[in-house]
Design a protein around this nucleic acid. Structure first.
Length: 580
RNA sequence: CGGGGCGUAGCGCAGCCUGGUAGCGCGCUUGACUGGGGGUCAAGAGGUCGCAGGUUCAAAUCCUGUCGCUCCGACCA
């Protein structure tokens, strides 16, 4: 492609709306342009990168034995009603009524396709002999994001590869899951991404195993908890801590429990400041509604509740913070003054609560707190749980190590679904004995746009993007320095034709611009290999070949230039693809 | 959904407080020079100041409303 014939609107200045590097660079390098909040056009360069990433995904899916199909983005709302996800998605599900003749139809734009595939399979699968089966598609998904942000990272419309496995047994599911897991690892390495597979919360959907694939990045939305010594890695939502139930520490303390006035101080911060104590001295009491029943949750003042852990500890599916009315009823006080000593409902406590000695907690009365409170003495405490978010330096759940944190961008998620959808949508098969069973499913997603955004976010320097060879919109940028110099153009055109002939994706900057200008644009756009043909080199009969990522230029005789470059491109792609 | 910020030329911004001719840099067009890291000179084009209402002789500027974008937080099968 000749630059002059393409549409590559590079920008020298940083658009004011873009905050994070990937957003700024994708805009500046002419990859994308915004239509509205959460919706972007992929310009020629951006779209080529998307297609390259999608092709890698496609190849690895095919290799893993999945078959590609293509489902409608338009879906009847009834399917979501049957699985209960119209409710679960709520406002995130884009849906609307449309008129067709004298009928009123209600449709949704697919936020994902569990319903549609499961419905499909309920019609196509009858026998265990047809299973296992894994299908996938690469398709646009729609979600009404409450808050689109970070440029292309969180949008209302995005390209996703979603795969679904169908099997007759947990063993088949495990096998499909493992194949997808392995394929994902290959996909991210081939894309030149640094990635971490982490244990993940599978959400209300359930399932006993789930992994997310994360790109470690400063601006990632997710917090990843890691152990350097054993390699344990989990999403903060899911991360266990290696803490165990401690001795109940203060039950023999001689400090007396006392009531103190804390007018208007309904927050941990306010009370701690007022009493001039550490927040770790406080016992925070949160009131939740667990499957409709009020439950008190005790945490140390400086800790955060982890709702996934709470759900598991309480064995409930529905969990939300209680409303003011419930809190008033259970504590006899407005929000902010709850404590365990006279709570009118059951409560559970985190391990660290047991270690608080002479602590401070709510008195279950307006504008009053209690000091000198000791677990086991002033309120019953015999059993404690891991209920809070992991924190830096917590003990690892798997070894003797300590936990540390990194931020990550989620680029993939695999999980075992079980029979949630097959049960509600009647996707059954008959086994050898003519018994009917729901199909056991798994589901596996990859955000294709996020691969691109993740690369932009992590692979760049102060001058611009630096693409890996496998996903780069073009593999080689050919830069004739003076378009008006016939000798230069003759050589450049020859090399351009030869590279194209050899199957190399080459972009030639044939614009009549000054060299410095073209160099700057080349750096911004980040094509991995640059070939410069200019007057100076021409005199010596050479072209300069240089990697975008750095290093000196190689002077290659003009006659060998295209062959040399073709080999470099092949070697680099080979390197990123490993042995496959 | 709660809290902040910003809407003035394609992009980045000034002007608004204290009402009276709409400006700067980059980009764009034409020409000349120039030609190895965003070059120089000259001449140009480009704006319902987000939108609607109000106050005023007069509104980019003051008031009210509204829409959009954005950041922080909540939410995110």
């Amino acid at each position: 492609m000749r630059w002059s014939q393409s549409l590559i609107p590079t920008m020298k200045e940083v658009p004011s709306d873009a905050e994070i590097p990937s957003h700024q660079l994708m805009l500046r390098a002419g990859l994308i342009r915004q239509l509205m909040a959460g919706a972007y056009t992929y310009l020629p360069l951006g779209y080529r990168a998307i297609r390259k990433a999608a092709e890698i995904v496609r190849q690895e899916m095919d290799n893993a034995g999945a078959v590609e199909l293509f489902m409608p983005a338009l879906q009847p709302i009834e399917l979501f009603e049957r699985t209960g996800r119209k409710e679960a998605f709520g406002n995130v599900l884009i849906n609307f009524p449309i008129k067709r003749r004298d009928q009123q139809l209600h449709m949704a734009l697919g936020p994902t396709h569990e319903e549609v595939v499961t419905d499909l399979m309920s019609k196509l699968i009858n026998s265990y002999r047809q299973l296992p089966l894994t299908v996938y598609q690469i398709q646009t998904k729609f979600r009404n994001e409450e808050r689109p942000r970070f440029g292309v990272l969180r949008t209302s419309e995005f390209l996703m590869k979603d795969a679904y496995s169908f099997g007759t047994s947990v063993e088949q599911l495990d096998e499909s899951y493992q194949k997808m897991y392995d394929a994902y690892c290959r996909i991210y390495s081939r894309c030149g991404l640094e990635y971490i597979p982490v244990e993940a919360e599978s959400g209300p959907i359930g399932g006993d195993a789930s992994h997310e694939f994360m790109i470690p990045a400063q601006n990632g939305e997710d917090s990843i908890v890691r152990c350097e010594s054993c390699g344990y890695a989990a999403n903060l939502e899911r991360a266990d801590t290696g803490r165990s139930q401690p001795e109940i520490a203060g039950k023999d303390s001689s400090t007396e429990m006392q009531t103190v006035e804390t007018p208007g101080m309904g927050s941990i911060e306010a009370v701690a400041t007022f009493l001039n104590i550490e927040t770790a001295k406080m016992i925070k009491t949160l009131v939740y509604l667990a499957d409709g029943e009020p439950v008190g949750v005790l945490l140390r003042g400086d800790h955060e509740a982890n709702e996934g852990k709470l759900r598991r500890a309480l064995s409930v599916t529905d969990l939300e913070l209680a409303d003011e009315e419930t809190i008033q009823k259970v504590t006899g006080a407005p929000v902010g003054f709850a404590g365990p000593t006279s709570l009118k409902c059951r409560f559970i406590a985190d391990h660290d609560v047991a270690e608080v000695v002479d602590g401070v907690t709510g008195a279950n009365a307006v504008d009053q707190h209690l000091t000198g409170v000791n677990p086991g003495r002033d309120f019953d405490l015999t059993e404690t749980f891991d209920l809070r978010n992991a924190e830096e330096k917590d003990p690892c759940p798997r070894c003797e190590g300590k936990l540390s944190f990194v931020h990550g961008i989620e680029v993939g998620h695999v999980f075992k679904l079980g029979t949630k959808y097959s049960s509600s949508l009647d996707a059954d098969y008959l086994d050898e004995k003519e018994q009917r069973h729901p199909i056991i499913m798994g589901c596996y997603g990859i955000g294709v746009n996020r691969i691109i955004a993740g690369l932009a976010e992590t692979c760049h320097d102060e001058n611009g993007l630096i693409w890996p060879m496998t996903v780069a919109p073009y593999e080689v940028e050919l830069i004739p320095l003076n378009v008006k110099d016939e000798a230069v153009m003759q050589e450049a055109n020859r090399i351009y034709d030869e590279l194209k002939e050899a199957g190399v994706d080459v972009l030639m900057d044939d614009r009549d611009a000054r060299p410095g200008f073209k160099f700057k644009d080349a750096d911004l756009v980040g094509i991995p290999l640059k070939v410069v043909v200019g007057g100076k080199g021409l005199k010596d009969g050479i072209a300069e070949v240089k990697w975008r990522k750095g290093g000196d230029a190689d002077r290659i005789p003009l006659a060998e230039a295209s062959q040399h470059v073709t080999q470099l491109v092949r070697d680099e792609k080979q390197r990123l693809s490993g042995n496959s």
